[in-house]
Design a protein around this nucleic acid. Sequence first.
DNA 1: CGGGTGTTTGAATGGCGTCAAAGATTGTGG
DNA 2: CCACAATCTTTGACGCCATTCAAACACCCG
Lengths: 259, 259
Amino acid sequence: MQLELPKPLLSMDLLARRLAALSPLSDHERSLLLNCQQHCKCNVAGSEISGGPDHLQPASLIISGWACRERVMANGRRQLLAILLPGDLIGGCMNQRALDLVEIVAISNVRILNVAGLLRAVDQQPDEYPGIARGISLLRFCEERRLLDHMVRLGSQPALQRVAGFLLELFQRCRSIGYVSAGSFVMPLTQEMLGSALGLSVVHINRVVRQLKADHLIDLHGGIVKVLNVTGLARVADLPEEEEAREPGRYDWAIAATA
Amino acid sequence: MQLELPKPLLSMDLLARRLAALSPLSDHERSLLLNCQQHCKCNVAGSEISGGPDHLQPASLIISGWACRERVMANGRRQLLAILLPGDLIGGCMNQRALDLVEIVAISNVRILNVAGLLRAVDQQPDEYPGIARGISLLRFCEERRLLDHMVRLGSQPALQRVAGFLLELFQRCRSIGYVSAGSFVMPLTQEMLGSALGLSVVHINRVVRQLKADHLIDLHGGIVKVLNVTGLARVADLPEEEEAREPGRYDWAIAATA
DNA sequence: CGGGTGTTTGAATGGCGTCAAAGATTGTGG
DNA sequence: CCACAATCTTTGACGCCATTCAAACACCCG
């Protein structure tokens, strides 16, 4: 299921841009990122990228494609805990984070880049690469925050708000990595996967999506989502307006506190 | 809302016992724990222990009483994300963990002990206190794992299973800190709080509890829960039998991997 | 073309929320 | 010690949101 591929172009550049959005990087740090050559694996859609306590996943960066962290119950039902996009980090916190014990499955074809060596270098010389260290830390911090957001969705929101909030999150994440053009982004999630993520049945996901379309909040055809009315969607999702502004650059307090 | 109290007896002993259950401690480490004197705060039931990004909570140990991490929505609804028991650790990961930004509220009267100094000592001399460092790390790891368990409950379990699984978790956690006698433990949660934690209405919580009583799985009166049939409760909660064994001592793999 | 997978829709059932009101319990002040 | 308020628990009736079952429709690929 895993094929060796030639190194992708611009892969480390993706990480550099994401980190820079969270924490300022020096030229020295940029050069470390760009000169760090690692090997790249490709996972076919539907295959398991990592799973279980047995098989430790080295710190890796998702270069392209979507993946998810999922848990399968004795029941047979699946619960998607998180969606992983290009620029997201997986593994690396060996047994420090419970999240790293959750199975990761490729949704579309996924290319991941082993960055364990890079992180080791940063770890050994923290004074030399403070920006990278902060950025990595904030990357994980953001995923945890999203996890809590999702928990609130599951616990205390009805279906319409859940779907609206979830789509809005995906939209904003895609936008922050430059995957949105003209208000649209590619979403390789089937409605069944949406259901597994949001704790709803496929049928009801469909009905809710129909409603969102009817209200001219989104458009969804052939795996492409177009957000027609961001603030309207945020209102339906019961999110404070501030949510819209909570994008890269607003982590000054965290950066200050870590320094 | 916060009164200074004389240092509680046996408070560091509680931490020592919890850590020892997760990771072996040397005599040297035990003496550090027992000699480390810190000041203790008392929070009245219902008061806010810590909240918001503004007010950083120093690493603290809950000595007695129950607390919870909760998030309040624009809606007014509250979602309890986690229940905190004596022996649980809060704060300390300044802006590294998203969980530390969630408001913590005292459920019953809660005494907390500032252990920031202790953690600093361990951090500065990691080679001298490896067991404590591992134990602390595992303490946080366990809370994260419970968070994921709870997420699965909210996302893909009906009411009966949710309540059963949640009560079972509380039972096992209380047992592991010696708060269970004759199968009973004190649970200072109102049914409304149970509802806020499990995403269910008060009325329905009541109905589900009645059902669990009728099935002779639990008994619940006056804030005291008695688990009558552990395996039966686990079966209802749709938990694998292994869950019962997942107690302190089963973290050998994690300890080995961290070494 | 046919099979597989994903989407869409309807009808019927049921789980769970809401409303309302009556106990039960606890705490407080007279 | 009792009365009273406040909070929590319990129960019934009703309605809606969401699931399930079922079947038709669209799409992609070999």
